[in-house]
Design a protein around this nucleic acid. Structure first.
Length: 951
RNA sequence: GCUGGGAUACCCGAGCGGUCAAAGGGGCCGGACUUAAGCUCCGGUGGCAAGGCCUUCGUGGGUUCAAAUCCCACUCCCAGCACCA
C-alpha cells in the first residue's frame, strides 16, 4: 500500500492540531508528567542540536501519555537578547520584528517534525504579556530586600556594550561574543543570590542531576569552611581580618599579606617611605586585565608596608606585606602567610627572604629533617606550637581546637566563605525587560508603582549600524517620567534585565500560561511542578548559568509564597554533542572546514584525514534538518537521532546510518502491510508471537520509563520487527494474531516515529487517534505452554547445527544432505532434574554430591556408571573452567527440563523447518541408542545439547 | 593542580562478578532472489584443521573456585574550575 511520507506526516500533524489532543488540562485525579526542553533563542531555522533536544523530549512526552499520565509539554521562545538588536541594526528595523519573523520560522520547523507541544501555552519572553510579570516579580523581590543597587567593579564587554554577570564570563571572556571582558566601576542592580548559597549547595545532594552538573554547581558556589582571624597592628587601632581554611597552621604564620587593593594598605603606609612602593604595585595590578594579571602572578610580587601585626595566638610580631597574588574580592582580601604549609606563601617567602616555620609534621616525608624545598600542604600533627597543648592535634581536630581558642579570646570566628557572588542583573541594552525603577533627584531611587506596570519597550525606535549604546537613553518619552513619590520630573532607569531572568521562571508560567491576572496561580504550579519538572532536557552549557538561576528563582518565589516547590527540576538530562565528519590534520591537531575534504593541510602540507567534530557553522559540517526531512521524512530523522546514541552520549552524524534507519522504517511498514493482508489460519506460532509481544513490551516500558531511549528503540523498532519476521518464517499467517500484535506494537512505535504509527493505527481501522490512546495494562499471560522456551531452544539447536555443519563440510568431499540429531538418553534428564531440585534447596554438591549420587537407584546400573559420574559432575560442580550446568542454565532452560520437555519429539515436529533453514534434504531425530550412532557423536549428547552429525 | 566523567572488537555502542568471544547498529565478506546492479532476505565477521583450545574489554598488580564487571596503582582522553588562602 502507498505511503507518501510528506503527505502522510503533514496530514497527521494537522489532525493532531485539529483535535487538540496535546492541550494539557489540570486534573488533580491524574498523575502528571511535566516534560520540558530548554526553550530556544529564536535565531532563524531549527538546527540539528535542537532536533536532538526536542526529539528526546517528544518521545518521552508521547510515551508518558501512552502510560496514562497527564502530560504537560510546552514550547516557547527565549527571545530577548543581543542578536535581535544586531540584526535590527543591519536591516534598520526593530528587534521586535526580527524576533517574530525568526519565531515563525523555527516554529514551522518544529511543527514539521511532529512534536506534540501544547502550543496553546506558547510564550515569547520579549512580548509584554510575558515581561510585565518580570517587572511585577522584580518589585516583589525589591520589597523583600532581595534587590540591591551597588557601586562595584563589574565585568564589562566592549563588543556587547554591557556588563555581564560572573556566570557569563568564561576564561575572562564574554560567553556570547568571546571578547575579553574588562573591569569597570559602575552602579548596578543585583539580586542577593548569596543569601541562598547554602540552600543552593546543600540541596544538590537530593536532586537527580548528572554528576558533572552537580560538581560544576558545587564548584561555582565554592563554599569553604574556615575562620576569620583578627591580627592587631602594632601602633594602630585598626585590625587586619584574615580568612583561612587552615587554622591548624596558625603558629607557622611569619607574615601577613594584604591584597594591593585592600583599604588598610594606604592607611598603614601613608606618609612613610613605603607608600610609594605600595602605590606602584597597586597601580600595576589595577591597570592589567585579569588575564594578564593571572599570567603575571606566576611571579609573586609584594612590598613591605612598614608595619607589623600581632599573631593573636603566638603573640609574635610579624611584618605586613601587600602581595599581588592575594585576591581582593575573596574572603577578607587578607591572608596570614604560612610559608611552611602553603606553596604560594613559600614562594613569596623565598623571594623576600622571610622566615619559614615548620609547624605540621609530615608523616610520609622521606627525610623529615632536610630543608624544605616546597611547602607541605597536607595534614599532619601540629608541632612547634608556641602554646604546647596544641601539639599533636591533627586535621579537623586541630582546626576546631584553634577555632574555639580564637573564639574564646575573642580574636576570631569560625565562618564560611563562598565563591558565589550576587547576581548582577542589569544590562545596558535595549532588548530586555525594563527595570521598573525611577531616579529622582530629590527622592533617590524609587520603585515604579505597581499600577503603572507594565513599562513597555518603545516600538518607535529605528536601529542602525552607526548606533552605539542603549537607544533607551535617548528616548524622551521613555525616560522622562514623574517621580511616584514626590511627583516632580524624574528619569526612568534605562538598564534592562539580564535575559537569564526571563528563563528563570518561564517553566512556572507554562503551568498557567494564559493567566492575565497573575504570573501564575500557586495551586496550578504546585500541581504541575510537584517533585519538580519530571524531565528537563537541555545543553550542558547552562550548568552554572540558567540551571543555577532557575533554582535560585524557585527558592525566592517560594519564599514570596507564590509556590510551594523547593527545586524546579526533578530529573535533568543534558543531551550530548552532535558531531559530524570534518577534515583533520593529525600533525597540526586542527579541524578544517568541510571545503578541505581530501585536500592537503594548508599549514603543513600533509594529506588531511577526517574525524568527528562538533557540528558548527564555522567548520561547515552542519546538516540541515529541513533537507533531511524533505528526503527521508521526520520519522526517519527522529529514529536516527534517538537510536544513534543514548540522550546523554555524544553522537556522530552518518549518512549511511541515516539511510539504514530509513530502510528499517520501510521494513517496518512492509511488515505491517503484509500482516494486514493475512488469512485467518491458526498456527502454533500465534501464541509465541503474542508472548513475545508481552515480554518485549514489559522490557520496553521499563527502559523507556528510565529515559533509556536507545534501548527502547532497539526493542520497539528492531526486536519487534525481527520477532515478527521469525513468526512469518515459522509459518505464522493469522490475521487475528496480526491484529492483536499490531494493537500492541503500533503504540510502541509511536513515541519515536509517531506519523507512521498513527497512519497504520488508522489503517487498522481505529477511529480514535493513537496520539490520545492510553496503553491498557499488559494482561497477556505467558509461559503456560512454554512457547518462548521452545523457540529459544530451537534457535540454539539451529545455531550450533550451522557451526557443526561448517566443520563437517571441511571433513567431507561429498555434498551434505542429511543431518542426524541424537538427543540425550532419558536417564540424563532424570539426573538433571534431580540436580535442579537439589540446587533449589541449596544442596552442597561439593561435599555431599557424590554420596547423594551413589544413593540414587540409577547408580546401580554398572554398565554406565562411569558415564553417570561424568554427567553428574558436568551437571553439578563442573570442571576447573566451567561451572556445573545447573548454574549456567537459564531459568527457562530449567523449566524445560523440569517439565519433561521431549527434545526428540519437538525437533521431529520441526524437522522440515530445520532442514529448510540449513539447506538440507533430510533431518532425522532420535534419542541416543534408538538409532544408528552416526559419526560416533552419541557421546556428546547432553540435555538441551543434542549430538549433531551430518552425512 | 583540584573536581567530575570516561577508555569494550574495523567504527558507534550495551554489559558492570559466573549463562561473555561479549547485545544491537554501521561497515565489510559470503549466500539466496534478480538478466545484472540496487533493494530485500539469510548467514559470517579475534586466532587456530574448530561442538574444542588459545588470546582479547586502556596498562600493571591484587581479591575470588570464577573478573570486562570488585579493590589498588598508573597512563591517556573529555568537561568544569583554578595563586579562592
Amino acid at each position: 500500500m502507498e505511503y507518501n511520507i510528506q503527505e502522510t506526516e503533514i496530514h497527521w500533524q494537522r489532525e493532531w492540531a485539529k483535535s487538540k489532543v496535546f492541550e494539557a488540562k489540570l486534573d488533580s485525579k491524574k498523575p502528571k508528567f511535566y516534560c520540558l526542553e530548554m526553550f530556544p533563542y529564536p535565531s532563524g531555522n531549527m538546527h540539528m542540536g535542537h532536533v536532538r533536544n526536542y526529539s528526546i523530549g517528544d518521545s518521552m512526552a508521547r510515551f508518558q501519555r501512552l502510560m496514562g499520565k497527564n502530560v504537560l509539554y510546552p514550547m516557547g521562545y527565549d527571545s530577548f537578547g543581543m542578536p535581535a538588536e544586531n540584526a535590527a541594526k543591519k536591516e534598520q528595523g526593530h528587534p521586535h520584528n526580527v524576533t517574530h519573523r525568526n519565531i515563525a520560522s523555527i516554529r514551522a520547523d518544529q511543527e514539521r517534525m511532529g512534536y506534540s507541544y501544547d502550543w496553546n501555552r506558547s510564550l515569547t519572553t520579549s512580548d509584554v504579556e510575558y515581561y510585565r510579570w518580570n517587572q511585577e516579580i522584580f518589585l516583589m523581590l525589591n520589597e523583600k530586600g532581595l534587590v540591591e543597587r551597588r557601586f562595584a567593579p563589574v565585568n564589562w564587554c566592549n563588543d556587547c556594550d554591557t556588563v555581564l554577570a560572573n556566570e557569563q564570563v568564561k576564561n575572562n571572556r564574554c560567553w556570547r561574543c568571546g571578547l575579553e571582558v574588562i573591569q569597570k566601576d559602575m552602579a548596578q542592580w543585583f539580586l542577593r543570590m548569596t543569601d541562598y548559597s547554602d540552600q543552593l549547595l546543600d540541596e544538590l545532594d537530593n536532586i537527580v542531576f548528572p554528576e558533572n552538573v552537580k560538581s560544576m554547581q558545587r564548584n561555582w558556589i565554592g563554599r569553604s569552611k574556615g575562620v576569620n582571624i583578627d591580627f592587631s597592628i602594632v601602633g594602630s587601632n585598626s585590625i587586619i581580618e584574615v580568612f583561612t581554611t587552615r587554622p591548624d597552621t596558625i603558629f607557622g604564620s611569619t607574615f601577613v599579606t594584604l591584597s594591593p587593593e585592600h583599604p588598610l594598605c594606604e592607611e598603614l603606609c601613608k606618609n612613610t617611605d613605603w607608600h610609594e612602593g605600595w602605590e606602584k604595585l597597586r597601580d600595576e595590578c589595577s591597570k592589567m586585565s585579569e588575564f594578564e594579571r593571572i599570567n603575571m602572578l606566576k611571579d609573586k610580587k609584594g612590598v613591605f608596608l612598614g608595619r607589623y601585626a600581632i599573631n593573636p595566638l603566638s603573640k609574635e610580631k610579624v611584618p605586613i606585606y601587600a602581595g599581588n597574588f592575594v585576591v581582593a574580592s575573596y574572603g577578607t582580601g587578607a591572608v596570614m602567610a604560612v610559608p611552611g604549609h602553603d606553596q604560594r606563601d613559600f614562594d613569596f617567602a623565598k623571594k623576600y627572604n622571610l622566615p619559614i616555620k615548620n609547624v605540621l609534621f609530615d608523616e610520609h616525608a622521606k627525610n623529615p629533617d632536610t630543608n624544605l624545598d616546597s611547602a607541605f600542604e597536607g595534614y599532619g600533627p601540629m608541632i612547634n606550637s608556641s602554646i604546647k597543648k596544641f601539639n599533636g592535634l591533627k586535621g579537623e581536630d586541630a582546626k576546631s581546637a584553634i577555632i574555639s581558642e580564637l573564639e574564646k579570646i575573642n580574636s576570631g570566628k569560625g565562618t564560611f566563605q563562598y565563591r558565589l557572588k550576587d547576581w548582577l542583573l542589569s544590562r545596558q541594552r535595549f532588548w530586555g525587560t525594563p527595570i521598573p525603577m525611577i531616579h529622582c533627584e530629590l527622592c533617590g531611587v524609587v520603585p515604579v508603582a505597581n499600577s503603572d506596570l507594565p513599562i513597555e519597550l518603545p516600538l518607535d525606535v529605528i536601529f542602525n549600524e552607526s548606533q552605539s549604546g542603549n537607544p533607551l537613553d535617548n528616548h524622551h518619552d521613555f525616560i522622562n517620567v514623574k517621580c511616584p513619590s514626590c511627583g516632580k520630573m524624574a528619569k526612568r532607569e534605562t538598564d534592562t534585565m539580564d535575559t537569564f531572568y526571563d528563563s528563570s521562571w518561564y517553566f512556572m508560567r507554562y503551568c498557567d500560561a494564559n493567566n492575565t491576572e497573575l504570573p501564575f496561580r500557586k495551586e496550578t504550579v504546585d500541581y504541575w511542578m510537584k517533585d519538580g519538572i519530571d524531565l528537563y532536557i537541555g545543553g550542558i552549557e547552562h550548568a552554572v548559568m540558567h540551571l543555577l538561576y532557575a533554582r535560585f528563582f524557585t527558592k525566592i518565589t517560594r519564599d514570596l509564597d507564590m509556590i510551594s516547590i523547593d527545586e524546579p527540576f526533578g530529573r535533568l538530562v543534558c543531551q550530548g554533542m552532535l558531531n559530524s565528519p570534518t577534515p583533520y590534520c593529525s600533525e597540526c591537531n586542527v579541524d578544517y572546514h568541510v571545503d578541505f575534504f581530501d585536500q592537503k593541510c594548508p599549514s603543513c602540507d600533509i594529506l588531511l584525514t577526517r574525524r568527528s567534530a562538533k557540528m558548527s557553522k564555522s567548520l561547515g559540517n552542519t546538516v540541515s534538518p529541513g533537507e533531511m526531512v524533505n528526503i527521508y521524512g521526520a520519522d526517519t530523522v527522529r529514529l536516527f537521532i534517538l537510536f544513534g546514541a543514548n540522550p546523554e552520549a555524544g553522537m556522530d552524524w552518518s549518512d549511511s546510518v541515516l539511510e539504514a534507519n530509513h530502510r528499517q522504517i520501510k521494513s517496518i511498514m512492509e511488515a505491517i502491510n503484509t500482516s494486514l493482508s493475512m488469512k485467518v489460519s491458526a498456527n502454533k506460532m500465534d501464541s509465541w508471537i503474542i508472548a513475545k509481544l508481552s515480554k518485549n513490551r514489559e522490557n520496553w516500558q521499563n527502559v523507556m520509563s528510565n529515559v533509556s531511549i536507545r534501548e527502547g528503540v532497539m526493542i520497539s523498532h528492531f526486536t519487534m520487527l525481527s520477532d515478527w519476521n521469525w513468526y512469518r518464517r515459522r509459518g505464522g499467517n493469522n490475521y487475528q494474531t496480526a491484529l492483536q500484535f499490531l494493537e500492541g506494537w503500533l503504540p510502541m512505535l509511536a513515541p519515536i516515529t509517531p506519523h507512521l504509527a498513527e497512519e497504520f493505527w488508522h489503517r487498522m481501522g481505529h477511529k480514535e487517534l493513537l496520539a490520545e490512546f492510553q496503553l491498557p495494562e499488559n494482561k497477556i499471560q505467558i509461559n503456560k505452554d512454554m512457547v518462548l522456551e521452545y523457540e529459544n531452544y530451537l534457535h540454539k539447536v539451529i545455531d550450533s547445527s550451522r557451526n557443526v555443519k561448517g566443520l563437517a563440510k571441511r571433513h567431507t568431499d561429498s555434498k551434505i544432505t542429511t543431518m542426524v540429531i541424537q538427543t540425550a538418553p532419558k536417564w540424563m534428564y532424570d539426573l538433571a532434574r534431580e540436580a535442579i531440585v537439589l540446587q533449589s534447596k541449596y544442596f552442597d554438591f561439593k561435599s555431599k554430591g557424590i554420596d547423594h549420587l551413589k544413593s540414587l537407584p540409577i547408580f546401580k546400573n554398572e554398565q554406565i556408571r562411569g558415564e553417570i559420574f561424568k554427567i553428574w559432575t558436568n551437571l553439578t560442580v563442573g570442571s576447573k573452567k566451567k561451572r556445573g550446568k545447573i548454574f549456567t542454565w537459564s531459568e527457562d532452560d530449567k523449566k524445560l527440563i523440569l517439565n519433561m520437555f521431549d527434545e526428540s519429539e519437538f525437533l521431529l515436529s520441526n524437522n522440515s523447518f530445520i532442514a529448510n533453514e540449513l539447506g538440507l534434504n533430510l533431518v532425522r531425530v532420535y534419542s541416543v541408542g534408538e538409532g544408528l550412532d552416526v559419526a560416533g557423536k552419541a557421546k556428546v549428547a547432553f540435555p538441551l545439547e543434542p549430538a549433531i552429525a551430518f552425512t
